[in-house]
Amino acid sequence: MCLHFSTTMPLSTQSQAQDEQYVLVASLDNARNLSNILKAISFKDHAIFSATTNGLKVTVEDSKCLQANAFIQAEIFQEFTIREDLVGFQVTLTVLLDCLNIFGGSTAPGVSTALRMCYRGYGYPLTLFLEEGGVVTVCKIKTQEPEEPIDFEFCSSNVTNKVILQSESLKEAFSELDMTSEVLQITMSPSQPYFRLSTFGNSGNAHYDYPKDSDMMELFRCTKTQINRYKMSLLKPTTKALALSCKVSVRIDNRGILSLQYMVRNDDGQICFVEYYCCPDEETDDE
């Protein structure tokens, strides 16, 4: 059932026999490729891990209104072995992040922590073998009963408006957003103002308008004018992923549910995705 196996792993000292008791084994030469992307969704403590042959999906939710999913494809890992169709467990994300950075998480070039992540199955802890400069640390993190993630039933056929922007232009807007505003209003329209972010704060209101022909706009596909408001407190955590990303896709479906997909390039130039779903703050009648 081995999908990928490499024999040149820094942590390949584990015996084959020992490996066989694990339902999931995932190795990374550079643990930062995992920790960076997990940091971007660490706005709540509990993270639901679900692994399939395609890779690892980590889900974090807030208030049943916001869901963040980080996808790390199997190809990102130097080794990704899964012995069941679906392996699911839940861990405390902050603890996992602390472990991944147990060697200090140095960003100096040439210094990296190698990771081998193993899970024996239901009831067992998640075991991390971390190695840097010949020192190996073994961390065992207690796993919890995985919760069922919310299904936002977001499907692309119901998407009314979609834009793809280079993250750079959105980063600036998000760093300047008036945080005294309770909501962020997103206007998407086939006519002016095309794509607008608005805040309504203590000192007045502010609008950020992106024309559809801007060279920051990679795709503009809006069919209908939609004005929706989203709680600023819910959207605030998404800026972490935005900061890492190079492109962002903004989609809104016919119910006003917002999907933000961030394309994140890791240290080795590989691509991962972080996705957010957010419920609108109130029903706006856009009929």
Binding site: S169, E172, A173, E176, S203, G204, N205, A206, H207, Y208, D209, Y210, P211, D213, S214, D215, M216
Partner: peptide
Amino acid sequence: NRLTFTLHCKHGLLKTHNLS
């Protein structure tokens, strides 16, 4: 009764602040 600051930025981005 608003003082409006409009910033015309690169890439056509328009920032409008209506301040009371």
